[in-house]
Nucleic acid binder design. Structure first.
Lengths: 230, 230
DNA sequence: ACCTGAACACCGTTCAAGT
DNA sequence: ACCTGAACACCGTTCAAGT
């Protein structure tokens, strides 16, 4: 027994409190998120789960935002990037990857919302970016356009997932959305002629259909829009 | 003096506490936001400002999200929708309206972030949607595409403003971004060939340039992408 | 109907003090 | 170096009671 490694407690006592570590904290955070949603992943809640005080976590994590980014990076591991070598149309495969990303975000309440601001920089996030860039490259999109386009694609996917998922779990958000739908329907044709003309079409369509169209439209735009117009 | 209208206090006393009202609450909220940012617009802070307890506000406002949506709707009044009758290319005018929207969001810390989830349905928001639809109509974009496209345009504008504005005021967010930039630069060319090939271009460009390109690309995509492909 | 005090159930973060 | 207790400075929301 050396003094660096304190004597293990007798087996009889309840499970030894494991030493804190970045990995352990993130794993616990993911667990709490799966069970209770991201809004419950707080420094205090995590400290409680790890049987310590919140101050102890600050040795490993700088702040709550960093913690949320770490969770996102971790869960991004579940995104299906598709087979490494080509099979099928690159557009379809691009849509599939983005669809998988959206579904992962959608699966966990609050995750999409956090993805809107968090900037992970781990291997799972980089892998996703790489996969999208490879597909755009395969489609012959010029590099300069692909570089900026990948951001837009992730942005619309994330924003759509956030919007949809907040509406699904939050009654207040649903009410707000219903108010908007109502407002759009009852609008005066004199003041808002185009809204009145388009009517229900403004909020029509199943989320998946809308999102599929959005992906196609953005890809087409990225493809057709040079970076230095003259 | 009637009993419905309690006797006014003598002029000598400090300014009479004005009666609460939805408008008064929203106006105070906008004031606090201008002075201290949206993160300070809390039920408790507002109650303090209005010289009452937080519970009193719940007579007029259902929850904090509704309050934030009301602030957004109010500040959207500052968006420049351009002249009513045509002058200049519709694409340029569309970009100008979206640019003005982005600048308004950007002006107030936290506002863009709230716009990502809030769904206002007041006249200022409707006016913005109407203006964008009118310009897309003028450009000959089919109604079905314009109806869904306007959402995408507002989404990318909002998400870009949120990203940029969070980075400008939040040191932690800036660190996170720097970590990402570093990670992108130092990536292994074997594991992430496309990221390595594109390198700095992934994060290049002034925000305005990027955003201007994004608007052009999305408009082009919306224009070129029919809703029912076969 | 409107307003309030008080309470319930939480937050993030810092810091001096301990091991 | 790592961990902790305690504190500081806050949150949203509800509800019984008052006017």
């Amino acid at each position: 027994m050396n003094s660096r490694n304190p004597a293990p407690r007798s087996r009889r006592e309840r499970p030894a409190k494991p030493a804190l570590s970045y990995e352990g904290i993130v794993a616990t955070a993911v667990g709490v998120m799966r069970a209770e949603g991201l809004q419950r992943v707080t420094m205090r809640r995590l400290a409680q789960e790890l049987d310590t005080g919140p101050a102890s976590l600050y040795v490993y994590v700088a702040n709550t935002a960093e913690l949320h980014a770490a969770i996102l990076e971790e869960l991004l591991g579940a995104v299906d990037l598709g087979p490494v070598s080509a099979a099928g149309d690159w557009r379809d495969r691009l849509a599939a990857v983005l669809g998988s990303y959206t579904r992962v975000l959608f699966e966990y309440p609050g995750l999409a919302h956090s993805a809107l601001v968090a900037r992970p920089s781990g291997p799972n996030y980089l892998g996703l970016v790489e996969a999208l860039l490879a597909l755009l490259h395969e489609g012959g999109i010029p590099d300069a356009q692909a570089a900026w386009g990948v951001d837009v694609l992730l942005q619309v996917a994330t924003a759509t997932a956030a919007e949809q998922s907040v509406r699904d779990r939050d009654i207040a958000a649903e009410d707000e959305h219903d108010a908007l739908v109502d407002a759009l329907r009852q609008v005066s044709a004199e003041t808002y002629p185009r809204i009145a003309a388009l009517g229900a079409d403004l909020v029509s369509g199943a989320p998946e259909q809308r999102l599929a169209w959005i992906f196609r439209a953005v890809v087409n735009g990225v493809q057709a829009t040079p970076r230095q117009p003259d």
